[in-house]
C-alpha cells in the first residue's frame, strides 16, 4: 500500500521574536489521502496559515520548523534541502493564497507568468507550455482563455484573478494543494463557483486538498475531514459529519453555536466569552480553559490528544461525550 499523500506528525513551528518564543504551531498532526479534502479550521492567530506555510517550506525567519515531520508520499519535507524543495514546490505541491495578487506579478502578463511556471518544472517547448496554460485557464472556467492570456492581472476581477491563481496551481497537476482562505475575499456567488471547481478537481484528478478557513459553513459542504485549531494546537479532529453533528471539544461546540443560522432568529447567539489568548505567554495546560464553561482544576495540566471514538480525536479531559444540541 502506498503511503498517504501527506502525513504531518507532531509539527512544531516556532517564531523566535525579541518579545519571546511564539509557538504558532505546536504539535500538530494530521493525514490527507489522495482525492480527499481536509478542512483546517480556526480563528485568527490559531496557527492554521502557518501550518500551511510550513508544509510548503515558506516560513520566514524569525520563524522555523523546530520539530516533527512532514511526510509527502513518505518523503520528509522538513529535512529536504532548499533545492530539492524548489523542485517540489509549484510542481507536486502547490499553494493558493487568500489574496491572488500575492501569487500574481502585477507587471507581467498572465501568459508570461504561466509559461514561466510550466517551463520551471517541465522540459517542453514554449508553444506546448502556452498550450498547457491555455488549457488550465479553460479548466477553471475562464471564458475565451486564448485572449485572456494576453491580459494583465489588474484587468481581471477579484474572482477571475483567484481563478488564474488556481489555474497556475493546477499547471503541473499537483498531488497536494494547500489553499489558504481562497474564497474569503470573494462574493457569495463567486465563492460558489470556486468551491465547485475545487470539488471537481479533487474528484477528477485525485489531488489531495487542504482547505484552510475560518468559516465552518464552507468546510461543512466541501471537506471530508476537519481539524479544528486553537492557539497553535489541533483541539479536535475527525470526519466532517461527526465533528459537526457531535463535537467533543467545548471550543468546537462554542464555534458551531456561534454560527447565526444555527440559532433561532432574534434569540441571543450562543457566544464564547472572552477572546483568543496571546500566543506569546500561553498558560500551561489547556489554552481554552479561561473561556471554557467546563473548566476545572485538572485543566491546568496539558490535556492529551486522545481518541474518544474511532477516528475522533480531541484535546480535552472532559469532552462532550453525549450528543450536544449545538
Amino acid at each position: 500500500m502506498s503511503p498517504p499523500t501527506l502525513q504531518v506528525r507532531n509539527l512544531k513551528t516556532h517564531f523566535f521574536t525579541r518579545a519571546g518564543v511564539v509557538r504558532a504551531v505546536d504539535d500538530v498532526s494530521f493525514t490527507v489521502e489522495s482525492g480527499k479534502v481536509l478542512g483546517l479550521v480556526g480563528e485568527s492567530g490559531s496557527g492554521k496559515s502557518v501550518t500551511g506555510f510550513s508544509i510548503l517550506g515558506l516560513v520566514d525567519p524569525p520563524g522555523r520548523v523546530t520539530g516533527g515531520s512532514i511526510l509527502f508520499k513518505g518523503q520528509d519535507l522538513a529535512t529536504l534541502s532548499e533545492a530539492a524543495m524548489r523542485r517540489l514546490r509549484g510542481n507536486r505541491i502547490a499553494m493558493i493564497f487568500q489574496d491572488p495578487m500575492m501569487t500574481l506579478n502585477p507587471v507581467l502578463r498572465i501568459d508570461t507568468q504561466m509559461i514561466e511556471t510550466v517551463l520551471a518544472h517541465a522540459k517542453v517547448s514554449r508553444e506546448e507550455a502556452r498550450q498547457r496554460a491555455r488549457d488550465a485557464l479553460g479548466q477553471v472556467g475562464i471564458p475565451s482563455p486564448e485572449e485572456r492570456l494576453h491580459a494583465y492581472p489588474h484587468q481581471f476581477s477579484g474572482g477571475m484573478r483567484q481563478r488564474v491563481a488556481i489555474a497556475i496551481a493546477l499547471l503541473h497537476k499537483p498531488d497536494l494543494i494547500v489553499a489558504d482562505e481562497p474564497t474569503t475575499a470573494l462574493d457569495v456567488t463567486i465563492q460558489g463557483q470556486i468551491l465547485a471547481e475545487a470539488q471537481k478537481l479533487c474528484a477528477e484528478s485525485g489531488t489531495a486538498l487542504i482547505w484552510i478557513t475560518h468559516d465552518l459553513s464552507v468546510v461543512a459542504g466541501l471537506a471530508d475531514d476537519i481539524a479544528v485549531m486553537y492557539a497553535g494546537k489541533v483541539v479536535e479532529q475527525g470526519p466532517v459529519v461527526d465533528v459537526l453533528d457531535a463535537p467533543l471539544h467545548p471550543y468546537t461546540v462554542g464555534l458551531i453555536g456561534s454560527v447565526p443560522s444555527r440559532n433561532h432568529r432574534g434569540e441571543p447567539l450562543r457566544q464564547i466569552p472572552g477572546m483568543t489568548p496571546s500566543l506569546l505567554n500561553l498558560p500551561a495546560g489547556c489554552a481554552f480553559r479561561a473561556r471554557c464553561p467546563r473548566a476545572e482544576a485538572r485543566c491546568a495540566e496539558p490535556p492529551p490528544f486522545a481518541e474518544y471514538r474511532p477516528g475522533r480525536f480531541a484535546r480535552c479531559i472532559h469532552p462532550y461525550q453525549e450528543a450536544v444540541a449545538a
Binding site: 457569495v188 456567488t189 460558489g192 465547485a196 454560527v259
Partner: peptide, 24 residues
C-alpha cells in the same frame, strides 16, 4: 434565490456546489 442557494450552510454535508453563472 441564487444567492440563498449559494450560501454555505453548516447544515449542508458534502454537497455539490454549482455556482451562479457569470461575473457580476
Amino acid at each position: 434565490r441564487a444567492l440563498l442557494a449559494e450560501v454555505p450552510r453548516i447544515e449542508a454535508r458534502k454537497r455539490a456546489f454549482s455556482g451562479v453563472k457569470g461575473e457580476i
